[in-house]
Nucleic acid binder design. Structure first.
Length: 378
RNA sequence: GGACGGGUGGGUGAGUGGCUAAAACCAGCAGACUGUAAAUCUGCCGCUCCUUGCGGGCUACGAAGGUUCGAAUCCUUCCCCGUCCA
């Protein structure tokens, strides 16, 4: 087996430092995974991602199924080869699109019927189909199809989503293992996803349902979709307390820079979020001193780098005034430079977090981050 | 010299008697963004006053006069700009 996960160190908070081995490289955890939905982290080349030190990125089942199509990707040698990315890839199942494209889909026990946002065509995504697509893509880690709902949500809706997610997880697990037996060794790990909205007992129930299926890793889903940060933490904590120590825990879709350490402190090993890349394209830059909304007039003649304490190639070379100009002019380079910086910033936070765990001082790091972000930019 | 067409808020440009401080877009200013339908979306965008309200006052559709209860809109003169003719 090409996969393994080892926890090497823990922090008094409960944070863990570890190593996730995949067929496409070893990844130090806790890790932040930049999001590359359509087989590209928007505005970054794979060369840039390698330079930034990204060890694993996300891609999306639903989007790649619609375009260019998973069979084409399979034919072209799989997603790694297709996009020329030698490191690890985790594919999300399309479960998030159940939430984000709620007006274009209908859920049944069988699966999710989507009307394509691209051309209006109808597609049925079942738990089995999601497995099949991700096997064709050849990602290192595949997520099961789940039902992600908004928070706050009424209890009966949350309960229904938990049960459907469990039923789908079971089908996905069975189908995945059938494929594994048929094809011999599959170089892919499959993760289950815990749901339960903001109800602690539902979160427990969901976690226990998934544990029966013996996944090599577990995700906490359906959080940071409307509830306050404290509730996100509370729910994540309820789940990590139950999950096995020896398997990676992935908190899906988080978070803000100052929140990352909080999640890690709850025993989370993996996170992903569109925030650094999307905010970058929208002229929001993250720095060690807080957010910089670079389009603001106050930066028009600011000769400083985006972040004076940042070592990224953008901060070493370009000024705030120049970045602001590029955004004002609508130049593509604005998105490229801003994304580069923000991804560097996120990955650097994770380096600092891993280091802090090593020294057993994560909570200090966490409160410093919150203080800086509360203060705002200089 | 003549014939048309036109001059509207920072820009482009709708509006041809009241619902118009004046559409829409751009620019400008500010904000949002958490497993990406997002290089997207939202708010403000004449000046001013306050008891901040679908509030009051003032100024404004080339200029000046006029008609009208009421004018960016109708009339007169003038000034500009464009196209064509001589």
């Amino acid at each position: 087996m090409n996969f393994s996960f080892e926890v090497s160190k823990t922090d008094p908070t409960g944070a863990r430092r570890g190593l996730l081995n995949t067929p496409h490289g070893a990844i130090e955890t806790p890790v932040f995974m930049p999001v590359g939905t359509a087989a590209t982290v928007k505005a970054l080349t794979q060369e840039a991602l390698e330079e930034l030190g990204a060890g694993i990125i996300l891609a999306n089942t639903y989007h790649l199924y619609l375009r260019p199509g998973h069979e084409l990707v399979r034919k072209l040698g799989g997603l790694h080869q297709f996009m020329s990315w030698p490191r690890a890839i985790l594919t999300d199942s399309g479960g998030y699109q159940v939430f984000s494209l709620s007006e274009l889909r209908k859920i049944t026990d069988e699966g999710v019927r989507f009307r394509s946002h691209l051309d209006g065509s109808e597609h049925l995504l079942t738990p089995e189909k999601a497995v099949e697509i991700q096997l064709a893509l050849g990602s290192d880690i595949a997520m099961v199809l789940d039902e992600c709902i908004e928070t706050p949500a009424p209890r009966d809706k949350a309960e229904a989503a938990v049960n459907r997610t469990a039923a789908w997880a079971k089908r996905a697990r069975v189908y995945f293992q059938e494929c594994a037996q048929r094809n011999g060794d599959l170089s892919q790990w499959q993760f289950g996803i815990v749901q339960g909205a903001t109800f602690a007992d539902l979160r427990h129930e969901s976690a226990h349902q998934l544990l029966e299926l013996d996944f090599p890793g577990y995700a906490v889903g359906g959080l940071a979709v409307g509830e306050p940060h404290e509730v996100t933490c509370e729910m994540a904590g309820e789940v990590t307390a139950i999950l096995p120590q020896d398997r990676p825990r992935y908190l899906m879709g988080v978070g803000r820079p100052e929140q990352l350490a909080d999640y890690v402190a709850l025993g989370i090993d993996m996170m992903d979020c569109v925030l650094p890349t999307r905010a970058a394209r929208h002229a929001c830059l993250y720095t060690s001193e807080g957010r910089v909304l670079i389009k603001n007039a106050r930066y028009a003649s600011d000769q400083r780098p985006i972040d004076p304490h940042c070592a990224c190639s953008v901060c070493r070379r370009y000024t705030r005034a120049y970045l602001r100009h590029l955004f004002a002019a609508g130049e593509i380079t604005a998105a490229i430079l801003a994304t580069h910086h923000n991804v560097h910033f996120y990955l650097d936070i994770m380096r600092q977090i891993r280091e802090a765990i090593g020294f057993g001082i994560l909570s200090k790091f966490s409160s410093e981050m919150h203080a800086r972000y509360a203060a705002g930019p200089a």
